[in-house]
């Protein structure tokens, strides 16, 4: 299909889509409507489970199965990243030149690294109380680790990044979520049922299974994102393709 034809087709379809979507939106309840039946029920259920952050309650308790699927997607992406970003048979590792870093950057990076890690842990730990949770905190932890790359160079990052351990931690985190669901079955309740003692509303340990799953997700996300980024960084910095291969296989 020529570029012009493609665009013409797109515009025709886009007009239809736009008309239909606009018409659909006129049928929606008004923006800011007061009626949210599912939401109201979810809030009541969260109170019942003594989880102060309703979103955590929905994520890790009421609709925990969605989150199980979501974490499996992340796990799959990490495994997929390992597979796709592996060093091909004909590639080799190049030595990495030591990066020259501004002294100010180095100082700031070393200062920021611990602050970031503390923030990440804080965000994970308070997941069922205030905004945040395993996923958000995990991403911050993983990003924070890469400050080592900014502050120093790739070698230092590699030294403080125990990939084998993180790999295993990722799998353990992903598996732990599915296994935690079995606890409910073991005591004769439903899969993923929140059977742990619920604690006091508003306390760090409240919510029964919620903080436990939250922690598992935090471990999984934190280590998974590091592993995934490591794949990309290796490709970007370290792996070289053999001469002639870059362009050669395309024919």
């Amino acid at each position: 299909m020529s570029r012009r034809l493609r665009l013409a087709l797109f515009w025709a379809a886009a007009v239809v889509f736009a008309v239909a979507f606009t018409a659909a939106c006129t049928g929606l309840p008004d923006f800011g409507t007061l009626s949210h039946p599912y939401g109201s029920r979810a809030i009541a259920a969260a109170f019942h489970q003594r989880t102060a952050n309703t979103i955590s309650s929905v994520n890790f308790d009421q609709r925990a199965f969605d989150t199980l699927g979501e974490e499996s997607i992340l796990f799959a992406a990490v495994l997929g990243g390992l597979v796709l970003l592996r060093r091909a048979r004909d590639e080799r590792l190049a030595g990495v030149r030591r990066g020259r870093v501004l002294p100010s950057t180095r100082m700031f990076g070393s200062l920021l690294l611990p602050i970031t890690l503390v923030t990440g842990v804080y965000i994970v730990a308070h997941g069922q109380l205030s905004p945040g949770g395993g996923f958000q905190g995990g991403v911050i932890l993983a990003t924070g680790l890469h400050l080592a790359y900014i502050a120093a160079d790739y070698g230092v990052l590699k030294a403080i990044r125990p990939l084998a351990v993180l790999d295993a931690a990722d799998a353990v985190g992903a598996g732990a979520f599915a296994v935690l669901g079995l606890v409910g079955l073991a005591v004769g309740a439903a899969y993923l049922q929140n059977v742990l003692p619920l604690g006091t509303f508003g306390q760090l340990s409240s919510g029964g299974l919620v903080p436990v799953i939250n922690a598992a997700v935090g471990v999984e996300v934190g280590s998974g994102v590091v592993v995934l980024l490591a794949g990309f960084l290796d490709q970007a910095v370290e792996i070289v393709s053999p001469t002639g291969k870059d362009n050669g296989a395309g024919r």
């Binding site: 920021l112 970031t116 945040g132 911050i140 890469h146 900014i150």
Partner: peptide
């Protein structure tokens, strides 16, 4: 008061991101 976590995270991530991009 708990919304303050957002600017905190932004203050932590933004310089890091900028430094990586700059590099």
């Amino acid at each position: 008061s708990s919304y303050v976590d957002l600017p905190l995270v932004l203050a932590v991530l933004a310089p890091a991101g900028t430094l990586v991009f700059a590099r």
